[in-house]
């Protein structure tokens, strides 16, 4: 089976809608290039933590583990990355620390779900609460940041109209994320690891009977996936904002799950879904800024959350999650 063909067949409507959107964007560009470029670049920036969160969620769920702790993984990783940056001023080291924090929390989730067989939703809640508590406890007011990642324009490509501003004038973590989307897609559908991962999430007993270690796969994948959530956290403090605030993830970890579901547990489709969310946020900010609409800012603030509910209600029951997701596997 050609996965690309399957992709097209299953998502005709969405892909056509995306194409229409692209055309509309080019039409708008003809009228006002600066604003369109600004909105698009902002869409991409907004989409980065969402798609990383969604990748984290989908690797977990493809292996049979629900991860509602992404919010907490992002938050604690953002915090630690920020602290390391404040102490050392080394952005690379800070990024790596954030990624490691994500991995540790991922491992903890795997421990709870696989070894302790805690209900996975409760397990994720534990992670969220821990992250909120720990960041609150160790947070000190008045820490001063030591700078953040700055955009690197890719020579040549950066000057392409529209696309250049959107894709080729970004800071490094954004580039890294864009690469990771395709790497995860490749790994999931074209490698033995991907085949095994999907098998473990669909029918763990069957995977076990052909000699695949279900527990090991789940531990490994949820830990690896945690790195992506950690990267999302590092992105927030080291690239997007530059500093840390309490609860700064603002539900992005949960929105990422909606992105994942909307993207049918597929990396590239999830990126599309994340861009849609990012676009909605960027557009309303722009409209607000231009005073094109006069709505209280609180209602604008609700939009991503409303959009999440609408998306979930729209696709709920019509998508097909991995069959064994949420069920602890008990070896006979």
């Amino acid at each position: 089976m050609n996965p690309w063909r399957t992709l097209w067949q299953n998502n005709r409507g969405k892909l056509i809608a995306a194409a229409v959107l692209v055309v509309a964007v080019f039409a708008a560009y003809a009228r006002n290039p600066q604003i369109v470029e600004a909105v698009l670049a902002s869409s991409l920036r907004q989409s980065i933590p969402l798609v990383l969160g969604a990748l984290c969620g989908l690797i977990g769920e493809r292996s049979g583990i629900i991860n509602i702790g992404i919010e907490g993984q992002m938050l604690l990783a953002a915090f630690v990355a920020f602290l390391v940056n404040v102490r050392t001023g080394n952005l690379l080291l800070a990024t790596v620390s954030g990624v490691l924090v994500g991995a540790v929390l991922g491992f903890f989730l795997a421990f709870m779900s696989v070894s302790l067989r805690i209900d996975q939703i409760i397990g994720g809640t534990v992670i969220n609460m821990l992250a909120f508590g720990l960041t609150g406890y160790f947070y000190q007011v008045g820490l001063v940041t030591k700078g953040k990642f700055t955009p690197i324009a890719i020579p040549g490509l950066a000057d392409i109209p529209v696309l250049g501003a959107m894709f080729f004038r970004n800071p490094p973590l954004t580039y890294l994320t864009l690469v990771l989307i395709f790497v995860v897609q490749f790994l999931l559908y074209y490698t033995p690891w991907g085949l095994r991962t999907r098998a473990v999430g669909e029918h763990p007993r069957a995977a076990d009977t052909v000699g695949i270690d279900v527990y090991k796969m789940r531990y490994m994948n949820v830990t690896l996936a945690g790195m992506l959530a950690g990267l999302a956290g590092a992105y927030l403090t080291l690239e997007a904002v530059g500093s840390f605030e309490r609860g700064m993830t603002n539900g992005r970890g949960f929105v990422a799950l909606a992105v994942m579901i909307f993207g049918r547990w597929n990396p590239i489709l999830s990126w599309g879904a994340a861009l849609l969310f990012g676009f909605a946020t960027a557009l309303q900010t722009q409209l607000q800024f231009m005073r094109a609409v006069r709505i209280p800012h609180q209602f604008i603030g609700m939009l991503p959350y409303l959009l999440t509910i609408i998306v979930l209600a729209g696709v709920g029951g019509r998508t097909r999650p991995p069959a064994a997701v949420g069920q602890p596997y008990v070896k006979e």
Partner: peptide
């Protein structure tokens, strides 16, 4: 709609 209450209630919190 089948939207899981864990996500919808969290979103409703923010709303």
């Amino acid at each position: 709609t089948g939207a899981h209450e864990v996500i919808t209630t969290i979103m409703l919190n923010y709303i």
